[in-house]
């Protein structure tokens, strides 16, 4: 049972959240310009590192904010990511 640090609500059990996957995979600004391979890669592949991955998490049962954390996929050590817009 991971404990996720929500930037607004503080640390909460992972069951209050939805993990929305790797944050570095942004939707291409112009999907039609993507080749078939690039588009398929965006849809279906993830980096899945052994080590630190930057993820989006959604505090669906709490403040409903979306935020990013860095999570080590081996140790589950979590580091909050500062919101660049704040």
């Amino acid at each position: 049972m991971l404990e996720i640090p929500c930037p607004w609500c503080g640390p909460r059990n992972e069951t209050e959240f939805v993990c929305a996957g790797e944050a570095d995979r942004k939707r291409p600004a112009n999907p039609e310009a993507e080749t078939e391979e690039a588009w398929a890669d965006y849809l279906f592949n993830t980096t899945n590192p052994k080590g630190v991955v930057r993820e989006w998490w959604w505090h669906v049962s709490g403040c409903t904010r979306w935020f990013q954390i860095d999570r080590d996929t081996v140790t589950h050590e979590i580091t909050p990511v500062k919101d660049p817009s704040k």
């Binding site: 939805v18 944050a23 989006w56 904010r65 979306w66």
Partner: peptide, 10 residues
């Protein structure tokens, strides 16, 4: 979830 994700992250 789909709409909220797009609004807040994309």
């Amino acid at each position: 979830a789909h709409i909220d994700r797009l609004l807040q992250t994309e």
